[in-house]
Design a protein around this nucleic acid. Structure first.
Ligand SMILES: [Zn+2]
Ligand SMILES: [Zn+2]
Ligand SMILES: [Zn+2]
Ligand SMILES: [Zn+2]
Lengths: 160, 160
DNA sequence: CTTGACTCTTTAGTTGCTACAGGGTTTCTA
DNA sequence: TAGAAACCCTGTAGCAACTAAAGAGTCAAG
């Protein structure tokens, strides 16, 4: 198959496939006379594996480790289990952070019940106060507070 | 005060302060004869405001909106409240996503109790299966699953 | 033979910083 | 008063994981 067919088969964007190849997650394929990449079933499976891992928010580095084990079927998989445990820890840590954030934000929101002039808005005034450290600094790799898909979409929609 | 003192006073890195200026979140300041930026109390407060918002995982664009209201004290703050509600929605949406992720990951983890050879690892085999869509695609801007601070730290620690 | 759909490589943009490099300025100390 | 340390300046590049676009080539259908 050609790259577009692989893309359709796996629900991946063409550019992402080429990106994974550059990053060494997918092997370089053979090419047609016209220099088109050609893929087989094995590539589709490997790509599905990667996308499945990504849908679980693993980093490409984490996925690289898992692929090493997939490529070495006789090795002991203990490290796989450990990696998964760690990643579950990353997710759990981020959930805790976000819950604390949510509490803070709701407390902040309560400071302004009905709209008035900005100078007397309880929210703006509270945000201007000094102190109030308590930033999130836990030990995980689940980051940010902002979804990818939707944010991009709204940005993209701005063009024309 | 000079930029380093402002940095210390607010717990911000010097480069971050210059970055905010480039991004238009902080105004361009006057300079000394030697071309050093000089700041006053108002700058410190504005920077505290920004950092406070950032600690609540708002984007710089969200913060820009809030600053517009801070700079226009006579305007009605209804939009501030709406923005906060939306952002709380972002955080809540991401929490839901991550909880679903956590469930999936724990289910996956249960597929391999004791380490064996990779070819028979229930985790690797499940990850290789097709289908299993259900990616996170909710409507928020809280992203990723990987913490910033710690990840960076471990990277930084690698130098020497 | 032309149109259109597809593919190729390379490069730049996204977010919110962080880290240099290669200078200049100020301040402390000997 | 010289020299060094500590600070500041601008400009550029890097991080993660893509996404998009420019400019060119390839291939199938009509
Ligand atoms: Zn992880
Ligand atoms: Zn208000
Ligand atoms: Zn938000
Ligand atoms: Zn296993």
């Amino acid at each position: 198959m050609k790259i577009g067919e692989l893309a359709k088969a796996t629900g991946t964007q063409v550019e992402t496939i080429r990106y994974y190849e550059r990053e060494g997650l997918l092997p370089e394929t053979s090419r047609t006379d016209g220099n088109y990449r050609i893929y087989g079933e094995a590539h589709a499976q490997r790509l599905s594996f990667i996308r499945h891992c990504r849908s679980l928010d693993m980093t490409l580095d984490e996925i690289r480790v898992l692929l090493r084990f997939k490529d070495a079927p006789t090795e002991n998989c203990g490290e796989v289990n450990a990696l998964l445990d760690e990643h579950i820890g990353h997710v759990a840590a981020r959930i805790r952070e976000l819950r604390s954030l949510e509490r803070q934000l709701k407390g902040l929101r309560d400071l302004c019940q009905e709209a008035r002039d900005a100078a007397h808005c309880g929210i703006l005034n509270e945000l201007a106060r000094q102190g109030s450290e308590g930033g999130s600094s836990a030990a995980g790799h689940v980051h940010g507070a902002h979804g990818r898909s939707v944010e991009r979409k709204s940005i993209n929609d701005k063009r024309k």
